[in-house]
Write a protein that binds this DNA or RNA. Structure first.
Length: 413
DNA sequence: TCTGGGGTCCTAGGACCC
DNA sequence: TCTGGGGTCCTAGGACCC
């Protein structure tokens, strides 16, 4: 086929969580708003309004720090259900523009607009129509980057914020990228930035002029990808494949950070039971079975370890997962106070790969019973059914730790 | 500053097999 | 004895993203 260039839009919602909160409470508009929790809680900023950012508040910053920088900020709890609902609306809007569409997180998407000119006109016109459609359907602003690769489109949308459009025409990619700091390249974080700077590489142009072989020698596979990215190409596993062809999830996990560190074995194990249930429930929802189960422990000094076990047979059964996780916990917990626990499932095999087992073993009865329990939870709420140990965790958390409700769960809105 | 929660991908070493 | 080479699977840790 004629390898004419692609036209890719990267659509990024502006201050997404904050903007959704403003839809539900318009009095927040224009004020310094921090989404993520109370100012004195353990936790970090999920999103900050532009007014709050003027004080130096930004996402991932500890809430206590944000409160010091901007004491007059309005702190609101996050509402994941609302964000999922609005994310679905965003998807619907984009789907009218092109079916080659991929949400890459709750608030951003790639849209392959190649070949839509006849219907929607040239890119700038289509982008304007998208802005209008998005505002009408969701009341939200977005920024749109347009380029011949995901990489260029993504960097453009960042430069276009807020509520703007930036189009880099085919052939002008290198020129656009050259003066930018290497940190602007997706995949270059604090550590890689430092490593590159140590080699005298500060700008994308410095990177583009290095020999790819040298980059590979010094940075391995990451170096190869960097070399491509410096020239505006989609390189590395992140950007492989056509838009809209992504596979299912690679892992499912849940974590809980205690509001106060604890060395209470009962509380720790019942929390692991609850996390195991949550993971299994989502496995069953997605019709997945996991072979590798992983425990995460973080102590008071923030030192974190992970311990994994791979089963011979994949599972989505609460009691199997919990037994595995508990065994890992008992083998690795030395009695120290714990800050965070996590349960992680990966190495999936879907049900079609299990077809030989259907109707044959005790596991089918288990799966049926557990699916029934999931339906009860949907109908009557999270407390309706649980492993006995999980029940203790709820009781403990609610009475001693979090009188307002369940840990990690929003209050009903 | 006192550090959430949900993910993806890469690296490196050891076990094990041929 | 003093010793290969490749491939796959598993585990642990960490960078990075939103």
């Amino acid at each position: 086929m004629p390898a004419a260039h692609r036209t890719i839009f990267h659509v990024d919602m502006d201050a997404f969580f904050v903007s959704v909160e403003e839809v539900f409470d318009p009095s927040l508009k224009g004020k310094p708003v921090v989404v993520g929790g109370r100012p004195n809680e353990r936790g970090v900023v999920s999103a900050a309004s532009y007014a709050a950012r003027k004080f130096g508040v930004h996402s991932a910053m500890p809430l206590r720090t944000a409160a010091k920088l901007c004491p007059q900020a309005i702190f609101v709890d996050g509402h994941p259900d609302r964000y999922r609902e609005y994310s679905a609306k965003v998807y619907e809007v984009l789907n009218h523009f092109s079916p080659k569409l991929e949400m890459v997180s709750i608030d951003e998407a790639y849209v392959d607009m190649t070949g839509t000119e006849r219907l929607l006109g040239p890119p700038m016109g289509a982008a304007h129509a998208l802005h209008v459609a998005m505002k009408t359907a969701t009341q939200l602003n977005c920024s749109i980057g347009i380029g011949t690769s995901r990489l260029v489109a993504k960097i453009c949308s960042d430069q276009a914020k807020p509520n703007g459009v930036l189009w880099i025409m085919p052939g002008r990619e290198a020129e656009f990228l050259a003066p930018l700091d290497v940190r602007k390249i997706p995949g270059v974080g604090k550590v890689m930035e430092k490593r590159l700077q140590d080699q005298g590489i500060h700008k994308v142009s410095d990177l583009a002029s290095r020999d790819p072989g040298w980059l590979e020698q010094n940075f391995g596979a990451l170096g190869i990808a960097l070399s491509g990215k410096a020239h505006g190409l989609d390189a590395g596993a992140w950007f492989d494949g056509d838009i809209g062809e992504a596979d299912g999830p690679r892992s499912i996990s849940h974590e809980h950070t205690f509001s106060r560190d604890t060395a209470d074995a009962q509380q720790l194990e019942s929390t692991l039971a609850r996390l195991s249930e949550m993971v299994c429930r989502r496995l069953r929802e997605q019709k997945l079975h996991a072979r590798t189960l992983q425990l995460k422990l973080r102590d008071s000094g923030f030192h974190t370890i992970t311990r994994a076990h791979t089963l011979n047979e994949p599972t989505a059964i609460d009691s199997v997962v919990f037994a595995t996780i508990r065994a890992l916990f008992r083998a690795n917990w030395k009695g120290e106070a714990i800050r965070l626990l996590g349960v992680h499932a990966a190495h999936f095999e879907d049900e079609s790969e299990q077809i030989g087992l259907v109707g044959q073993g005790p596991h089918d009865k288990w799966n049926q019973a557990l699916s029934a329990a999931d339906r009860l939870r949907e109908k009557y709420g999270e407390n309706a059914v649980s492993l006995a140990t999980g029940m203790k965790a709820r009781f403990r958390e609610r009475t001693h730790e979090n009188p307002a409700g369940l840990p990690g769960k929003k209050k009903p809105s």
